[in-house]
Every structure is written in structure tokens, then in C-alpha cells.
């Protein structure tokens, strides 16, 4: 009898067993699904240099590392935006604790502070992003959730008052507590900062903040070359990458050099008071000692550094 007669069906290839075939199919599927799974990384790698990918946390950078990082970021600004910028690493001043107060009796809701923030901090022009939201509130109410942001009529309207809200620089900051990678922390002078190169963009902090103070960069910020503010800080107003969270930093690139924040300078009524609470002669100290100040959502125990008050 010939070979064929032994089997009921013809044998195609004796060399490969069913097991080997299944292994091969499995390996191919596995390899291709892995390739698909890491494809976004390959895409992302186009925009991210190796240096950027390997960069350490801000607190772990040596001064020479930081110099290299800053040189790279300045070059990036030149390449991507065509702007000559200077990025500095402003350190907290010794014996300084910043605080902010806002007089709700004289705020007229003109939104000049939001505009100044927009320009000072190199925000995306298309979304008119700003760290400050001015809420139009009914007199007699302090419910933030009912504050109207997109009012567009002559201000100040009768029966309304205006409450600008920005980062409250909490002592017990929920945003800092929830960050899974410690990309955000409170500095010695009380300012809560973000390392934009360490942030993974999970937006936990944005969800945790009771004051809606954090913003997410959905897109790469677009700013015309001539409108870019060239005086930048590593932890403050340098142009943020896409996919990271940002927030008000009390203009630390200005305030740590002794200047007033941009929103305060823009305020036409002088509703904003800023200074060092450790200085007994400072304006902020006078306000805290002589006005009936309050903080927003005190019951949450966040201990803000941003105070509000009304004139008696």
C-alpha cells in the first residue's frame, strides 16, 4: 500500500504540527498588537527629543542640567515660535510669604486682570485662556457655581457684584495631594507650581481643585511671534507644551524679582492687594489686620492664601 492509503485525509506538511502553527499565529498577533499599542508613542516621539524624554524632575536637576534644559527650551521657542525668549529659574525669596487680597466692593468686573494674565503668561490666543475667571454674582449670594462668566453687557450691572477667581495657592492643596507623579508642589514662599515637563497630563489636579483654577493644554498654544512675552520663568510663564496642566503662579517671574503681579497692575480700581505677609508694614498685612477678610470654600480646609473682603 502507498503512504496515502494510511491516512484518510492528505497530509499537507509533516514538518509543522498544529501546536507550532498556533504558536506562530499567536506570536504574529501579539507582535502586531504590540506595534499598534505603542504606535502613539512613536507618533509622540516625533515632537519630543530624547533629551526632553530623559529629563529629570525639576527638583532633581543639577544647576548644569537645568542650564542645558533652559537652553533647549529657549531654542525650542526660537524654532517653534520664532521668538527670542529668556527663561530664568526664579527662586523663592528668603523671609517672604506671598498673599493676595481682593476688594469685592470696588471690583467692577471689567476683566482687565484676565486680559493682562492672558498677555503676560503667553496663553493660547485662540481659546483666550487666562488663569483668572471673573464671576458675575447676585448681590447677597456667594455661591460660586452660580457665578456667570460669559457676561457681556456694560459693567458694573446693578444688583451684581464681580468676583475674580484664580489659584488660591492653598496651604493644604488638593491638587498637590492628588498628583500621582509629584509634578506640582508648594514652594517655600507659598506659590503652588507645576513642572510642565514632568506633568503627565492626567488632569487629576484639575478635577480636585475646588476653585476651577487649573487649565489643561488641549492643543499646542498658538501665539503670534510679536505677542510672546520674552521674559519667562521655568516654573511660570514659559510657553507650555501640549497635554500638560497649568495654573496661576502669582506671576512668580515678576513677584520673585520684587514686581507686582500683572493682574494687579492692570486693575483700574485698585481692588487687588499683593505683598509679603511677613513684612508688618506691607499693604497686604494692613488688609488682613483691618478688613473682614474671608476665603472661598473655607469648609474644605484648603487654607487659601487668597483673601476676599468687602468695604464696610
Amino acid at each position: 500500500m502507498s503512504e496515502e492509503s494510511k491516512h484518510s485525509l492528505p497530509v499537507i506538511n509533516n514538518g509543522m504540527s498544529r501546536r507550532t502553527l498556533l504558536k506562530g499565529v499567536g506570536a504574529t498577533l501579539g507582535a502586531s498588537s504590540f506595534a499598534i499599542a505603542i504606535a502613539p508613542i512613536a507618533q509622540w516621539a516625533k515632537d519630543t527629543s530624547v533629551d526632553e524624554f530623559l529629563q529629570q524632575h525639576y527638583k532633581e536637576l543639577s544647576s548644569s542640567d537645568l542650564d542645558q534644559v533652559i537652553t533647549r527650551l529657549e531654542q525650542d521657542a526660537k524654532d517653534k515660535y520664532g521668538a527670542d525668549v529668556t527663561i530664568r529659574d526664579h527662586q523663592p525669596l528668603p523671609d517672604v510669604q506671598f498673599a493676595y487680597a481682593l476688594n469685592l466692593s470696588i471690583c467692577i468686573g471689567c476683566r482687565r486682570c484676565a486680559e493682562a494674565c492672558h498677555q503676560e503668561n503667553n496663553h493660547d490666543r485662540a481659546t483666550s485662556n487666562s488663569y483668572i475667571r471673573v464671576l458675575e454674582m447676585d448681590k447677597g449670594s456667594l455661591n460660586l457655581e452660580h457665578g456667570k462668566v460669559n457676561y457681556d453687557h456694560p459693567v458694573p450691572a446693578d444688583d451684581k457684584f464681580y468676583m475674580p477667581v484664580q489659584c488660591q495657592q492653598c496651604e493644604n492643596a488638593p491638587c498637590v495631594n492628588v498628583c500621582p507623579v509629584e509634578a506640582t508642589w508648594q514652594e517655600e514662599d507659598g506659590i503652588v507650581v507645576v513642572d510642565y515637563n514632568w506633568c503627565i497630563g492626567c488632569r487629576y489636579c484639575e478635577a480636585a481643585c475646588p476653585y476651577h483654577a487649573r487649565r489643561f493644554n488641549w492643543k499646542k498654544p498658538e501665539i503670534p511671534k510679536q505677542e510672546i512675552n520674552p521674559k519667562q520663568g521655568y516654573l511660570s510663564n514659559r510657553i507650555r507644551p501640549q497635554g500638560v496642566v497649568e495654573k496661576c503662579h502669582f506671576c512668580l517671574h515678576r513677584t520673585r524679582q520684587g514686581q507686582l503681579p500683572a493682574c494687579l497692575e492692570a486693575c483700574p480700581t485698585g481692588a487687588r492687594v499683593f505683598g509679603n505677609v511677613l513684612d508688618p508694614d506691607s499693604e497686604i498685612r494692613w488688609v488682613l489686620e483691618n478688613k473682614r477678610v474671608f476665603v472661598l470654600k473655607e469648609e474644605l480646609g484648603t487654607k487659601p492664601r487668597f483673601f476676599y473682603f468687602f468695604d464696610e
Partner: peptide
Amino acid sequence: CHNPHTPAFQKFRPVFPPDRDLT
């Protein structure tokens, strides 16, 4: 800031469009 003859702040349109509305 205050016109001495009519010192109350005059009403005017806010300058800057807001980014997002919480409501």
C-alpha cells in the same frame, strides 16, 4: 480714575472674552 465732576465709575463693556463658562 474718577472724573471730579461725575466721580462715579461709568459703566463700560468688559474688555476680554472669557474662556469657559462654569454654568
